[in-house]
Simulated assay, not measured.
Amino acid sequence: MRVELDEPKCVAAGQCVMVAPEVFDQRDEDGVAVVLDETPGAELHEQVREAAAVCPAAAIRLVGD
């Protein structure tokens, strides 16, 4: 699985960070999400799927999932 983030779509809600903090963080200056690990290990896949599902802007895309 590869994680992609459409930064312009991100509304800085922080839901992804709450669900998968090992994979997502937020920039200090504007709160926009950033991907810390574009190819997380299998043990994180369920958290990443949940993060994508709860993203209010649908800014997270999972490739190869």
Rank of each mutant, 00 (worst) to 15 (best):
M1W: 03
V3N: 04
V3E: 07
E4M: 14
L5Q: 01
D6N: 07
D6F: 10
D6Y: 06
D6R: 15
P8H: 04
K9S: 06
K9Y: 01
C10A: 07
C10K: 07
C10Y: 14
V11C: 06
V11Y: 02
V11A: 03
V11R: 14
A12H: 03
A12P: 08
C16D: 12
C16L: 07
V17W: 02
M18L: 07
V19W: 01
A20G: 12
P21R: 03
P21S: 15
P21L: 09
E22S: 10
E22T: 06
E22H: 13
D25F: 03
R27F: 05
D30G: 03
G31N: 02
A33D: 14
V34L: 05
V35E: 10
L36M: 13
D37H: 01
E38T: 04
E38I: 02
P40H: 03
G41I: 10
A42L: 05
E43Q: 05
E43P: 03
E46M: 10
Q47E: 13
V48C: 12
R49K: 12
A51H: 00
A52K: 02
A53C: 06
A53W: 02
A53F: 10
A53D: 12
V54F: 00
C55L: 05
C55V: 03
A57Y: 12
A58R: 05
I60Y: 00
D65Y: 07
